[in-house]
């Protein structure tokens, strides 16, 4: 309860700061518009105004700040403008419409989910291989760890373009990027999880004369679940970023990344912000969904905290 109050206060403070920040950020544009409409602004020269800070302009034109929260293309849209845009482009548009954010989110989400499923599946298989085979452990594991420290997302534009040039386009190239971005975190996390049973638990299995497969199935896999879910949460976030970045290089027309790019081309700030929030909501939902699955699974396994 106390935590909820604290969180709400922090969020409230952020919203207030956001509204206040709109004033210096947008005042210059407001003054230009006001001048065009025939109002008197200070200083009257556009050139002089350009060299002044937003703060100074605000202080010299305190009566003009009204429209800073309702401009068409503000430098910083006010929170309610973003919320209205989000509402307009989700609830008020048909899902199939090119202007519906749900449509764009789905395009990105489907690539994310497909890639995530592929990446996770392969990641778990490789992790099992690494734990079962010493050669694979020694040969592959160092590279999997190193791959965590390098920005492999830089490969994304090339993958899109190369696949495009051999005739593969649409969902699959983005899914491939999502797959390899979620692959490595899952491998590393899963290996850690499969190795998490301690010596005593392993020795117990040995006293039962359990086979390798039994040991994997009865001990290592159940023990690895908390680790797996921790890395799945990292992996799904990476997958989403991958799908978004995958939409940038070919100038895709659909998807959240395409909305971000189009918004930045045409200076449609409200559109950028709403696409950004849509991406944030999708990410939050995905992580929350994983959390729910994790809790349900751990409860069934009797491990729930």
């Amino acid at each position: 309860m106390k935590t909820l109050l604290a969180v709400l206060s922090v969020v409230g403070a952020i919203v207030v700061v956001w509204y206040l920040a709109c004033i210096p950020m947008n005042i210059a544009g407001v003054l230009t518009a006001a001048e065009r409409a025939g109002a008197e602004v200070s200083p009257p020269e556009a050139r002089e105004r350009r060299d002044m800070s937003g703060m100074a302009l605000t202080l010299r034109n305190p009566t003009q700040i009204g429209p800073v929260w309702s401009q068409d293309r503000p430098r910083l849209p006010a929170p309610h403008q973003v919320v209205i845009e989000l509402w307009d482009t989700t609830v008020n548009k048909k899902i199939t419409s090119k202007r519906s954010l749900i449509y764009h989110s789905w395009i990105t989400l489907s690539a994310t989910l497909l890639g995530f499923a592929i990446g996770t599946g392969l990641g778990i298989l490789l992790a099992v291989g690494i734990v079962q085979s010493r050669v694979m452990d020694m040969a592959v594991m160092p590279w999997a760890i190193v791959s965590q420290t390098i920005p492999i997302i830089a490969l994304a534009p090339m993958i899109i373009v190369v696949l495009y040039s051999i005739g593969v386009q649409g969902l699959l190239p983005k899914a491939i990027i999502s797959a390899y971005l979620s692959f490595f975190p899952v491998v590393v996390g899963m290996v850690k999880g499969l190795r998490s049973p301690d010596q005593m638990q392993m020795d117990l299995m040995r006293t039962y004369n359990a086979t390798d497969g039994q040991r994997l199935w009865k001990l290592r896999l159940p023990a690895s679940m908390p680790y797996l879910f921790a890395s799945l949460k990292v992996g799904i976030a990476a997958s989403l970023v991958g799908a978004i970045v995958g939409e940038l290089p070919t100038g895709a027309v659909a998807g959240l990344g395409a909305r971000l790019l189009a918004g930045s081309y045409y200076g449609q700030t409200v559109q950028i912000w709403s696409a950004l929030f849509a991406a944030a909501i999708v990410a939050a939902l995905l992580v929350a969904l994983l959390g729910v699955i994790e809790r349900a699974l751990l409860r069934r396994m009797g491990q729930a905290a």
């Binding site: 106390k2 604290a6 976030a237 970023v241 978004i244 930045s264 912000w273 950004l276 944030a280």
Partner: peptide
Amino acid sequence: DFLRRGLLPVGNFVAALPIVGTAPILVMW
């Protein structure tokens, strides 16, 4: 303690978001 309680969940939430999407906005600014 109040600020810590409030900021920690918000920070954890934001840390999981695709922040790289802010790039077009910041490039504009």
